[in-house]
Amino acid sequence: MDLHRLDHVPPELLTTPVEELDNVLPGPTLLHIPGRAEPPLFISTLLHGDEPTGFQSMQRLLTQYLGSPEGLPRSVWLFLGNVHAAKGNLRHLDQQPDFNRIWNGGDRPEHRLAARVVTMARENGLFACIDIHNTSGKNPPYSAINKLDPACVFLGKLFSDKLVYFTRPDTVLSKAFAEICPAVTVECGQAGDPKGLERVHGFVDQCLNLAAIVPTGYRTADESVYHSIGRIEFPDGCTVGFDHSGGQEDFVFVENLDSLNFQELPENTRIGWRHDAGKRLVVIDETGKEVGDEFFVYKGDEIRLKRAVVPSMLTTRPDAALDDCLGYLMQRYVLE
């Protein structure tokens, strides 16, 4: 798999629908777009082909700035990831790895492509890194950081008052770039939500116009900061459904499960049912240890919480749940 590099913006890129992007670009592409200030702002989008908001916001911003005499306020490196999956509105193609799980080494062509991008970023230096995503379930817009650095916190808070600190999975783009420059992942809600598009458009515009990243401090008791402590996965070969009425899959979850995202859930909250007593939900903590029995208890066929948690990224799409995860479990976090 080749990394395609461009030092200009093809005019058709600004008007092409995301599902037709592979008619313009041959594959993963890094565009070097000059601006008035250096070093460049690195912006990544379409790591998942079914998350178009980042690309659509960049079309608007580039149209706005490249059509003016002054051009971009700051140079941009724009990485457009899985353009082939975008054609089918898919997270990734069947034969591909997840493009946001390739940034910590590996022997596939996609891993080597990611390593090349990181090497170029390290050798050239960056102002900051923004990785733009949508969520498959209902979530408020929020930021996620992988390093408790004041500059990363500043960027996260610039996008949303809700900030999540996580270290796993450790194969995401933002974690690799956090070793090079201030880096943040922004989750813009579900694809097609105009509010998410407006929010990320305004955020990237702000970042382009920052002269410097100067953290202004933050409250240590900020109640909108969370620490991701567990990722909910499934045992191999199981089936998953949503809405208990009549569902007989191995695991069936309450209707509108994603409405629980970023809600304080008390101990003993019922989240679903299981129809195969031999299977249990898997929870992977930050050390990579399986800790499902610390979070879930099974009462008859009911699945209930064993402790109070705040979930995020809970999905109601079986394909997303089985391909990636059901969601994450968080707790409040006090910034030092």
Rank of each mutant, 00 (worst) to 15 (best):
V9H: 03
P10N: 06
P17E: 10
V18H: 09
P26C: 09
H32Y: 13
P39C: 10
E51H: 07
T53G: 13
Q64N: 07
L66G: 07
G67E: 04
S68T: 11
G71E: 05
L80W: 12
H84T: 10
A86N: 13
H92D: 02
P97I: 00
G105C: 02
L113T: 03
A121I: 09
G125D: 10
F127H: 08
C129T: 14
G137F: 13
P141S: 15
N146S: 06
L148N: 02
P150Y: 07
F159P: 04
A178D: 14
A178F: 02
I180K: 10
A191S: 12
P194S: 08
E198Y: 11
R199E: 12
D205Q: 15
A212W: 05
I213N: 12
S224H: 14
I229Y: 00
I229W: 00
I232S: 05
H244I: 11
Q248R: 14
Q248A: 11
E249T: 13
E249N: 04
V252D: 04
F253R: 01
F262P: 14
L265R: 09
N268V: 06
N268L: 03
T269P: 06
R270V: 12
G272K: 05
D301V: 03
I303H: 02
V310A: 04
L314I: 03
T315H: 05
T315W: 05
T316W: 03
R317S: 15
P318I: 09
A321H: 08
D324C: 03
Y328E: 09
L329K: 04
Y333M: 14
